[in-house]
Design a protein around this nucleic acid. Structure first.
Lengths: 181, 181
DNA sequence: GTCTATAGTTAGATAGAC
DNA sequence: GTCTATCTAACTATAGAC
């Protein structure tokens, strides 16, 4: 049931996902759903938190791998993704009801904060290893890397084509390699 | 009425915007709305097209200004924006009903295509002026720049704070300056 | 725990008077 | 052109039986 909610939130967002749709997707009755959850918001909270955890784990997989900072970030950016489906967590920022509910926004905020911190850490390591010129700001660059991903999804969905995403990622990797050389 | 629809689409998206809400915002009756428009979709089409036109014009203002490629792009990225409200056009990519309707998706697609092309043009000019190393790919870098903006909005909304947007932009500008030096 | 019935509310639109 | 009345369906939840 949580899994079905995750899927529906990904595809249709919070406003666009009805309890009835969740029940149909999970093959569960209304009574069942309202027995286990107080309502749509609580179910969404569970689903968002699970998606957030899964996403962080997936990111860590590439980011904790060995290699230079640029290599690790490039692997993170270039990992296989379902580009046209967009980011499960990022898309929630477009949902006013999610942003308005602290319980729903918190995991979204935490996920991106963690990813930016992790990227900044890696970039700072690269800095210390002499991989980058000292002028490179790890925190700002980390935000840029995270933004390229989220923005890449937006551009790809607008175009109904993976290409803009792939270009954005390629451009970002080339820039990092450019300043690292 | 179109203006009210633009505003509501910006704040609540297509799924989250009801005809009744539009009428209330525009201080118009139902009869009036359904006289001028066949329904929600047609009204949304008009609103999206107008927002797209306005956005393209605003972008062109910075991009057509004099200066080096990096300067022009930096001015575009750093222009004053209502960051926490997100991008009026970009947020529509999270709306499955907008993406599913070719008439509604078309202006979204066209807007981003135009902006990416315009950025690529400017970067190519910078290349020809010897501003960048030859390895810089104008098309890919243009997608990266556009993505940083869209992703910056996402990060800022998730954090409920402008800062991640500003950091992402700053990181992007520094990278461009870095490869240009 | 799960089911069915019920209920108040809104979404989205049509009809016909003025 | 605009207004009010009306309509069907969906949304979100509660109640109470089993």
């Amino acid at each position: 049931m949580i899994r079905s909610t995750q899927q529906l939130l990904w595809e249709r967002g919070y406003v666009g996902t009805s309890p009835k749709a969740i029940q149909a997707a999970a093959d569960a009755g209304q009574g069942s759903m309202y027995h286990h959850f107080s309502g749509k918001a609580e179910l969404a909270k569970a689903a968002i938190e699970r998606s957030a955890t899964e996403l962080s784990a997936a990111a860590e997989e590439q980011l904790s791998a060995p290699g230079t900072a640029v290599e690790r970030i490039a692997r993170y950016l270039e990992r296989d993704r379902q580009v046209l489906k967009g980011c499960r967590i990022g898309r929630l920022t477009a949902d006013p009801d999610v942003m308005a509910d602290p319980a729903l926004r918190a995991p979204v905020e935490a996920t991106f904060r963690r990813i930016r911190e992790r990227l900044a850490e890696i970039l700072a390591e690269g800095n210390q290893a002499g991989e980058f010129p000292e002028t490179l700001d790890p925190v700002a660059t980390a935000a840029t890397v995270a933004a390229v991903l989220q923005g890449g999804y937006v551009l790809a969905r607008a175009a109904n084509d993976d290409e803009p995403f792939d270009q954005a990622v390629r451009g970002m990797v080339q820039l990092l390699q450019g300043v690292a050389s």
